[in-house]
């Protein structure tokens, strides 16, 4: 299994899409750390996410097309099968919202319907 490689494909590949959104002076200490895309497969446990610089490398260079080659025999791969629309970052008003999670368990099981495990 090459599940470890999914960290870069999913977490880094997704996070860079909104890199720079909502940060600035109001960003909290507990917010996203800088994420750095290392060459090839990152050490998932220590990987950090850095952003604008990683956007091109992760999304355009390997995030859009070459991620499939990590799963699928390249011979089978169609050109341009994976397309991710990378729109300009949109920054809206900050909204911290509530932090209570006291009744989250009431939803347990709902997503089991959607998970294929």
């Amino acid at each position: 299994m090459r599940i470890d490689k999914l960290f870069k494909v999913l977490v880094v590949g997704g996070s860079v899409l909104t890199a720079g959104c909502g940060g600035g002076a109001g960003a909290p200490p507990g917010g996203s750390r800088a994420m750095t895309v290392e060459a090839d497969v990152p050490d998932a446990a220590s990987a950090q996410v850095d952003a604008p610089a990683a956007r091109d490398a992760s999304v355009r260079a390997d995030g859009v097309s070459s991620w499939m080659s990590w799963f699928v025999d390249p011979v089978e791969e169609d050109a341009g099968v994976a397309e991710v629309d990378v729109a300009p970052a949109d920054v809206g008003p900050a909204d911290v919202g509530a932090d209570a999670q006291d009744d989250a368990s009431a939803d347990a099981g709902v997503l089991a319907w959607l998970s294929w495990v």
Partner: peptide, 15 residues
């Protein structure tokens, strides 16, 4: 992951 990144940068996700 993209939405989480954006919301954390805004200070969300405390719970």
């Amino acid at each position: 992951w993209a939405h989480l990144a954006a919301e954390r940068a805004r200070g969300g996700g405390a719970g």
